[in-house]
């Protein structure tokens, strides 16, 4: 994949976070599109989305030029990884494929140090951002209409995706906060996530 394409991988849990994970990827791509970028956002089809709690991936890609890879359906080298449920760090090598200098965003009420102890390859990171998205807007929005390629009728960023996206802006310069605000439904949660995020530079 052309090196100019920025790859963002979201790790979420099957069914209970299926929509939230997808909203993070879609929100990011939609906001980047407002900034004139070429974007893609899609689910990993090989993961098992219809089993409760199974680890699964959603992807976003942002580029200044047209993205030629549409059907290479894995992000091999993510520079930003978002973990929508913190316990995933014990179950999966979430930084797989990341090159040195990446950013990790985690939805947790714990401190960055508490998460980093479960990341054996943390030297790849230049920063970690923690945000208590559940504390800001409660449980994930569980909605199945967007699964398996259906049309999502609930709207983007009504739940936990909003504060996570807000936190993302604190650790990266992928998109601007106002462009995220233009695409997510729960703007208050977006701003709260942005304010309350804890950033630790490494």
């Amino acid at each position: 994949m052309a090196s100019k394409v920025k790859q963002i991988t979201v790790w979420a849990r099957g069914v209970v976070q299926d929509k939230e994970g997808r909203d993070i990827a879609n929100g990011l791509a939609n906001a980047a599109k407002k900034e004139g970028k070429f974007t893609q956002a899609f689910d990993n089809y090989v993961d098992l989305p219809d089993r409760v709690n199974v680890p699964l991936r959603k992807y976003a890609r942002i580029s200044d030029e047209e993205i030629e890879e549409r059907y290479e359906y894995e992000n091999e080298k993510p520079e930003v990884v978002i973990v929508a449920d913190a316990t995933l760090v014990k179950g999966i090598n979430v930084l797989r494929g990341m090159e040195k200098g990446g950013v990790l965003v985690v939805n947790t009420d714990r401190k960055p140090e508490d998460i980093l102890k479960f990341i054996p390859n943390r030297d790849l990171l230049k920063a970690i951002v923690c945000v208590d998205a559940k504390g800001i807007c409660g449980e994930a929005t569980v909605d199945f209409s967007g699964s398996e390629g259906g049309v999502d009728a609930v709207g983007l960023g009504a739940g936990m995706a909003a504060p996570i996206l807000g936190a993302l802006v604190r650790g990266t310069n992928l998109v601007k906060l106002e462009n995220l605000a233009a695409v997510v439904k729960n703007k208050e949660a977006l701003y709260k996530g942005h304010e309350q995020a804890v950033v630790k530079t490494l």
């Binding site: 090989v46 913190a86 316990t87 999966i92 947790t108 508490d114 998460i115």
Partner: peptide, 17 residues
């Protein structure tokens, strides 16, 4: 009990499936 309160029980696979 919440999983992050334990040091053990790490599986850490490379791919989910």
């Amino acid at each position: 009990a919440y999983e992050l309160d334990f040091e053990d029980g790490v599986v850490r696979l490379e791919k989910p499936f």
